[in-house]
Nucleic acid binder design. Structure first.
Lengths: 219, 219
DNA sequence: CTTGCTATTCACCGGCTGGTGACAAGTTGG
DNA sequence: CCAACTTGTCACCAGCCGGTGAATAGCAAG
């Protein structure tokens, strides 16, 4: 093509404009990580693979191998990112509320966690993944998540002493398990064990039940 | 190969003995269904497909199309089978116990369900499937399961009236959600939210916590 | 035996997957 | 200008997937 031609022609974007990807490793790495998180959040872990991520990031899959050492490394990077999840999603102050009792604390924690999980599709997919597969990938992701969560609860607890005579670890595990399954089930099917979970009013019912359970145990 | 050779040779079973599958449609259908259930229970829904089931049943996948109309039909057949699950796994009498209060009832129900789910890998896989994917297949399976369960609870409840002023549907949904997630998480990773779930003693702790929660709500 | 019917298997297709080796396009330094 | 390195692309592989059309094997009635 002559240069004259180039000048005369209006620079109409050809539809398949390659967009001239700039040579920038850091940006590409970020694009890959973002694509991976988006894909996992939106499509779930079922169709989560090298090809899909590369397609989503608009680059060649080879780069995923180069920069992350394959899917495993990429998943691990997601897990690292996840460390900051709790801090981003959940305030670590008491919201100006005085938490006088352990029951106050747990009620607030439970409701915060419920809302945070409802608002975060990526986290939900990871939780579903955790109970579906037992690969090294998922195990690491799971660890990162539970560690972050445990740390947050610990900080939140402050100097409050748990009640005597109650196995708080076991009881809290049940409570968090309930929240997780409730939110997962609701997201997929709009209900859980016969309880509709679509409208705001439905969720108020769930929150009330949750509070009742927490208060029933911790007073 | 000469016939003399055949006579001289001891009838050692060749490793790839075709086993001369007998011509029996009913038996084949059953073999397919069994293989499907076994595969789903043991491997999970991830690698659950036509080819895998056919391999497991030791027949050609074509037969799955012919007899069940494809994977969907097969899954539906599993769902139908599942209808009898509750009856098989959970006694519908009160075990010689007098259930005087709604709390008595729910405590017993919760513990029975916990044990039943722990003992049934197929059911666990299905529950995990339910919170991971939202296809027509899974939806039907999910419906069959919840319907059977609801019916069982209804029968079990008998003439006992639920307490006033408590949203039992919501509270029970939370309780069953807790049980399901607890068991799923335990099966995959041996723990749930920091609570170890491996030894019998661990499970006793969980049962105690569950009882405490139920009693906390229903007295 | 021959003619059907049914159960079962076989061979093949296109498409997608994870994975790899070679190559092109820029960038930097001598 | 050339050489060396980094970034990115492409082409290709074997393997599995779901799905389909045709052939084969056993049985039963005529």
């Amino acid at each position: 093509m002559s240069s004259a031609n180039a000048v005369l022609r209006k620079p109409i974007e050809t539809p398949a404009e390659p967009e001239k990807r700039v040579r920038n490793r850091a940006a590409t790495e970020q694009a890959i990580l973002d694509a991976a998180k988006r894909l996992l959040a939106e499509e779930g872990f079922q169709n989560f693979g090298i090809n899909a991520v590369a397609r989503g990031a608009g680059c060649d899959k080879q780069l995923i191998y180069r920069y992350y050492g394959g899917l495993d490394g990429l998943v691990e990077a997601i897990g690292t990112d996840l460390g900051g999840w709790v801090q981003d999603r959940i305030p670590d102050d008491t919201g100006g509320m005085f938490l006088l009792t352990y029951g106050d604390l747990m009620e607030r924690l439970a409701l915060l966690f419920l809302d945070a999980l409802r608002a975060d599709p990526l986290m939900r997919r990871i939780v579903a993944w955790e109970v579906s597969e037992n690969t090294e990938q998922v195990r690491r992701l799971s660890e990162a998540r539970s560690k972050a969560l445990a740390g947050w609860i610990e900080r939140m607890r402050g100097s409050l002493t748990p009640p005597k005579g109650i196995d708080t670890v076991a009881v809290n595990a049940m409570i968090f398990a309930a929240i997780q399954h409730l939110v997962l089930s609701a997201t997929i099917s709009g209900q859980c064990a016969g309880l509709a979970l679509k409208t705001a009013k439905d969720w108020e019912k769930a929150a009330t039940a949750l509070k009742r359970i927490v208060r029933g145990v911790y007073g």
